[in-house]
């Protein structure tokens, strides 16, 4: 397997708090990695550093062999690194279809075309429609995305990230706010997209059942660094993880 992403010694401080404190992480092509950890472990900050939403104080990130530590987010997307957000971020006034289209057109470098109508991009439109089908969003395709039910918006957000055809896609709690049934459905969708499209996923998730059902590998974060990593079974039986993570989770819930 080829190495897709390597992060070495990432550090990010907010005032006195080191949210990410010497994070080392490696992701290989084709695997599905779950990133777990108690609240405040630095998972979201880690994702923000990897996606370029924040710049690290120290450390390096290489993606497919290139140093991307200081690249802005849009440049990372063009190299094949996409993400979704924990707090829902779709384009609320664009239709669901346009939400996907804008991602597809941006990927094709067509966003700078000011003169041809969007309709002229048949390929992009067909791709958007087929993705709408995969996401189960054909129904509301022409409605403003902000007016869709929560679950639909969650799937749409996943779709926006996938539409940029990333090699690696970072998902920040893609199922937050969903009921258990919807969660399971979303995770199946992630799995299916991973298989069909050859996307490598790193998923931040709270729901342990979901995580252990989905992931090939689990990375446990605590206090801004990696506490343990390995296959789900191994992590499930890891004593240190059980004590720090599962213990603290009970407190935080």
């Amino acid at each position: 397997m080829t190495v897709l992403l390597v992060a070495r010694g990432l550090r990010k401080r907010f005032g006195d708090l080191a949210a990410v404190d010497g994070l080392d992480l490696q992701v290989e092509e084709g695997e599905c990695v779950a990133l777990i950890g108690p609240n405040g472990a630095g998972k979201t900050t880690a994702l923000n550093l990897l996606s370029g939403h924040l710049l690290p104080d120290e450390g390096h990130i290489t993606f497919r062999g290139d140093d991307i530590t200081r690249l802005p987010p849009h440049a990372r997307v063009h190299r094949g690194l996409a993400r979704s957000f924990q707090v829902m971020t779709v384009f609320p006034e664009l239709t669901a279809r346009e939400n996907l289209l804008v991602s597809i057109l941006a990927r094709q470098g067509a966003a700078r075309d000011a003169l041809r109508p969007v309709r002229a991009y048949r390929g992009a439109e067909e791709e958007a429609d087929s993705l709408l089908g995969d996401l189960g969003l054909r129904e509301g395709a022409e409605a403003p995305a902000g007016s869709l039910p929560h679950g639909d918006q969650r799937r749409l957000e996943l779709g926006i990230a996938v539409a940029s055809r990333p090699r690696l896609c970072l998902l920040d709690e893609p199922s937050s706010g969903l009921n258990p049934l919807e969660r399971a459905g979303l995770m199946q969708l992630v799995r299916r997209l991973a298989d069909q499209r050859g996307v490598t996923f790193v998923v931040v998730e709270h729901d342990m059942d979901v995580v252990f059902g989905l992931a090939d590998r689990v990375v446990v974060m605590n206090r801004g660094r990696v506490l343990a990593e390995g296959p789900p079974e191994e992590i499930r039986n890891n004593r240190e993880v059980r004590e720090t993570y599962l213990g603290e989770e009970d407190v935080s819930c």
């Binding site: 987010p73 849009h74 063009h78 957000f85 384009f91 804008v102 966003a111 000011a114 969007v118």
Partner: peptide, 25 residues
């Protein structure tokens, strides 16, 4: 009505999301 127009509306709706679909906001 061009892709550029669509991209501008995406920037309007959510800067952060737009940046993360590969648009240079």
């Amino acid at each position: 009505h061009s892709p550029l127009g669509l991209a501008l509306r995406a920037v309007r709706d959510s800067e952060v999301r737009a940046e993360h679909v590969g648009l240079n906001v």
